[in-house]
Each structure stands twice: as structure tokens, then as C-alpha cells.
Amino acid sequence: MIPDVLLATGAALLQAGGMLAVAPLLKTLIKKMKARLQNRQGPPLWQGYYDLAKLLRKEPVRSETASWVFVAGPRVYFAAAVAATTLVPVLIAAAPLEAAGGILLLVGTLALGRFALATAALDTGSPFGGMGASRDMTIAALAEPALLLGLFASALAVGTMNLGALVRTLLEQEPAWHPSDFLAFAGLFIIVIAETGRIPVDNPATHLELTMIHEAMVLEYSGPDLALVEWASAVKELLYLTLLANLFMPIGIALRAEPVALAIALVAWAGKVFLLAVAVTVVESTNAKLRLFRVPELVSVSLGLAFLALAIRFL
């Protein structure tokens, strides 16, 4: 028998590796679908990998005034994103490292990554970095409680904060929808758009100083540092979509690690993430970017919806 620790570590490595491998594809897929909606050809689906490979080959250029915080930022951000992938059930109804913690640890890990990147952006003293960091934090201050509340709402339905156990219980019990689920889903969907820097909140495709948030924060990075940030952002996006798909549509997730069940789970997961990616693309293509001062209003809608999702359970 293989000890549990080794098994969990192996599963965690496999899952993190898989997510890292797929994430650039998702990013390019959304870009491609967006281009198609605008009657453009769009990049080839492998473009995300080409970009990363190109950036990783280059030499990093760092400002003379940058300290170790600037160097550590992308690394911590990347590590946090990778660590977070091991806390979420993807194909099997169990997270590899679920013994370590549930919802709170997941949100905390992601917050650590964001903190590292924001401090690193402040480090060089460039106005763009500081501006981006302050904007990112303004949104995060509202988005994070909304994320927590939305996840709590689904945890409350099942009675556990552990994501693996949560999905297991969801799979075993009869599917009965409650308004709370849909409210939480709507709230979390807005959060996903805000956190991944998609259009009503931030525009991932431009470097316009008046509007950019995430791009302003990472403007100083180049070469492998930039590659780490981009890759981690892609992983985070995939992670959020997986979380949404598996918490609210837990169909097809394998209960045990059997080849057939895993194959079905893989197809189901890919399908669900694809559907959500289509939804993100449509939202991005049909909405105009909000003014920066309007963004907190949108995020506070999601905070309200998440709170309501929690409150309705008691009414």
C-alpha cells in the first residue's frame, strides 16, 4: 500500500501540472472566440504557449532601484496560484490536498499571491505600478468578501467548508436547486470577471493608462518574470472557472479514481469550462468597459447577491 501522504502529493503534482498545462490554452481560446465574434481570425490556439516560451527565453530587465520584493513578487504570485490548484476538486470529487484546508485556505492563498504582486508593483516607485496596485486593491477589497460569501453560501447548503467533501456531498444528494445557489452563482460569476480582469472591469488587451488595472501593475516586468505573472493569471482564471463549474454543476465528476469515470469526468470538465468560457466571451464582447469609478458598484452588486444567497437560506 502507498501511504496517504505520497498519494496526496502525487495527485497534487498531477493536478497542478495538468492545470498549468491547460491554462494558456483557455486564455487563447477566449481570445480566439472573442476575435471570431468580431469577424477576425484570431491567434492560433497554441499562441499562449508560444508567448510563454518566448518570454521564458528572454533576459529579465529590472529597474536599478528594484529590491528583492520586486523579484519575489511574480514568484510568490505564481506559487500561490499553483498551490491553490491543489485545493480544488477538478476531475475527482476530492481535492488532492484537502486535508490542508478548504474555502478559507483557498481564498487566503489567492490573497497572498495578490498581496505579493501589489507590493512588488509598488517597489520600483514607478507611478504605473502604484496606480495599478491601488486600483487592484480597491477592487479586491470588495471582491474578496464577495468571493468568500458566495463560497460560504454553497458551503452552508452542505454543511462543510472543505471543497472536496462539499462536492462529494453535492454528488451524492438529490439535485434540488435553491434560489441561493443561483444567486451565489451570479455573484461569483461577476467576481470571476473582476478577478480575471475581463472587460466590464478591466481590459486585458490594452495598455491604456486611464483604464488598465492588472496590466498597470505588471508593466515593469519583462522576460521570465512577466511569463510567470501571465501564466499564473491564466491558471487563476482556469481555477475560478473550474470552481464555478464544479460547485454549481457537479455533473460528471468522478467519485473514484477509475479510468472510465476519469475519462467521463475529463470530458464533462472540459465541456463545463468551455461553456463558462463562452459565457465570459459573450459578456466581454457585448459590454462596454465600465469607468473605473463604476467598477466598485458592479462588484458591490455581486457582494449583495452573495450576501442574499446566504440570507435566503435562513428565510
Partner: peptide
């Protein structure tokens, strides 16, 4: 209900 909230929100 969600659509009503979005109406309020923007």
C-alpha cells in the same frame, strides 16, 4: 431577481 439587482447596480 438577479436582473432586478443588476438594474439597481448600474
Amino acid at each position: 431577481l438577479v436582473s432586478a439587482y443588476l438594474m439597481v447596480g448600474q
